[in-house]
Amino acid sequence: MTGKPGQRQTGLRRTLSKTWTCYLFILPNMLGVLVFLAYPIVYSFYVSLTRWDFVSPPRFVGLDNYVRLFTGDRLFWVSMRVTVTYVLMYVPAVLVAALILALAMNQKLRGIKFVRTAIFVPVVTSMVAVAIVWVWLLSKDFGLINIALRAVGLPGVGWLTNQKTALPAIAAVGVWKSMGYNAIILFAALQSVPRLLYEAAEIDGANSWHKFWNVTIPMIAPAIVFVTVTSIIGAFQVFDQAFIMTGGGPGDATYVYNFYFFRQAFGQLKMGYASAMSYILFLIMFASAIVQLRLTREAAAAAF
């Protein structure tokens, strides 16, 4: 059938006349996204190709910033190594911690509702407050953690002043802060696993471990992927703990990527250089998200 253009237009107009209020409703949000998200993203890519100090106009230098980052900047590599190490410590730890919490929350126990709420308290607390409290907790002389260690006869550790323990310490604080949030996501997934599957597994003679491994895990796999991807992205952006608890030190121990980025941008006013750094971080996170999504899709395909 050959439709007349006029008719199609009328169709579109009809649709629009029915839905324009919907567009109107999302318009403020879309404008916000365009002005405060899309525009800065595009503009900062342009800035990454310039030298700009905030005061004089940006000067176009092509890929110079990127070349200098990769070839002549020791601290770039140092901060990259520190950040990747942080990601490798933080992501598995937060995943396991959140999963254990979620499984605990899924038990029908007295007072579990209170626990579910309490778990979320660190999530809604500001990172600055959390970091300051943990500086106290981790203190070698007066910190609760070291007091506990000494009580069982172990020597105290200067968690934040020792080069070896500073990064694991801030990673632990990161895990403590965000495990509640991730646990809630996994908990929601656990609650939506049909009881039927467990009953079927029981009939087949599965024990608890089998049920967990063969029913629970595959069923909540999408939630696990979500938690992993968002945790990796979050971990690459670690900043607050390093800024407040260790100042990037001692030595290079907690000199995370965003800390170096922050100093370049607001300490040394190299906005172009800093923008190039943020674009590199963006590409890394983008690539890792794609890889993970593909891997899980393959895993899911293999499982069924």
């Binding site: 600055v128 300051i132 800024f243 100042g247 990037g248």
Partner: peptide
Amino acid sequence: TASGLAFLSAC
């Protein structure tokens, strides 16, 4: 960037 200082300013 001394952490002590950051800590002080932060609170």
